[in-house]
């Protein structure tokens, strides 16, 4: 599914360069549920940005679905984000001036799907995450857990191959967090590849495989029994 080879990410920081990722080698296969753990500043967010095609490695190779991403143009990368990747963020990142169903429609809008189909699929997805009655609520009228469900429905809009979740339970209470993790597990069981970034061992434990990253280097890899 995806493969990172010797991925390095450097940032210019005044006269110095700050190396955030120091040669990451990582393969994630189709259908896997991988969690990436590490303390803050370890480079896990940068890794997720690179995996999500929001950022490009300074050196090394990132192969997505058999394609070397360094060869892709910006519009092609945008297209790939739109069609193959779904993001779930810690702070949900719903557009505040759109109701739930229009938030879910957004990726389909950029994917060029017509109005009628967009609306019916968005409603169906909201039904799948248990929010059918809240479809026309504004984000400000939804609880944290409900917002995250909307965000997951939005991430699923174009049937992506990979869902990248950055601390998806970080802003939720324990019970709601567990519900969100159960939802992600269900999606994984249905075939979606999921990579989740977290510092919460309980969350990471849900994954089949946990990668520990410290100071830009993968230090440990644990397979679930």
């Amino acid at each position: 599914m995806i493969e990172l080879r010797q991925v390095v990410k450097r940032y210019a920081n005044g006269a110095d360069t700050l190396t955030v990722l120091k040669g990451i080698d990582l393969r994630i296969e189709d259908g896997e549920f991988v969690s990436i753990m590490g303390p803050s500043g370890s480079g896990k967010s940068t890794l997720m940005h690179i995996m999500g095609l929001l950022d490009a490695p300074s050196s090394g190779t990132y192969v997505f679905d058999g394609q070397d991403t360094s060869a892709l143009s910006k519009p092609q990368l945008a297209r790939m984000r739109n069609q193959s990747i779904g993001f779930v963020f810690q702070n949900f990142h719903l557009l505040p001036r759109m109701n739930a169903v229009r938030n879910v429609e957004l990726p389909m809008l950029y994917g060029g799907i017509g109005r009628g189909e967009r609306r019916s699929r968005a409603l169906e997805l909201l039904g799948q995450v248990g929010l059918h009655e809240r479809a026309f609520h504004w984000p400000s009228a939804l609880s944290g857990g409900q917002k995250q469900r909307v965000a997951i429905a939005r991430a699923l809009a174009n049937n992506p191959r990979l869902i990248l979740a950055d601390e998806p339970t970080g802003a939720l209470d324990q019970k709601t967090g567990r519900e969100i993790m159960e939802l992600l597990q269900r999606l994984n069981a249905a075939g979606t590849t999921i990579a989740i970034i977290t510092h919460d061992p309980n969350v990471a434990a849900v994954a089949n495989r946990t990668i520990h990253i410290v100071d830009g280097v993968i230090v440990d890899e644990v397979h679930a029994p």
Binding site: P75, A78, N82, L95, L106, Y110
Partner: peptide, 16 residues
């Protein structure tokens, strides 16, 4: 700005 970032993450091209 954040809205623009979200839209880009959802697949909006710079042109869009």
């Amino acid at each position: 700005t954040q809205e623009i970032g979200i839209r880009m993450s959802l697949g909006a091209t710079r042109g869009a």
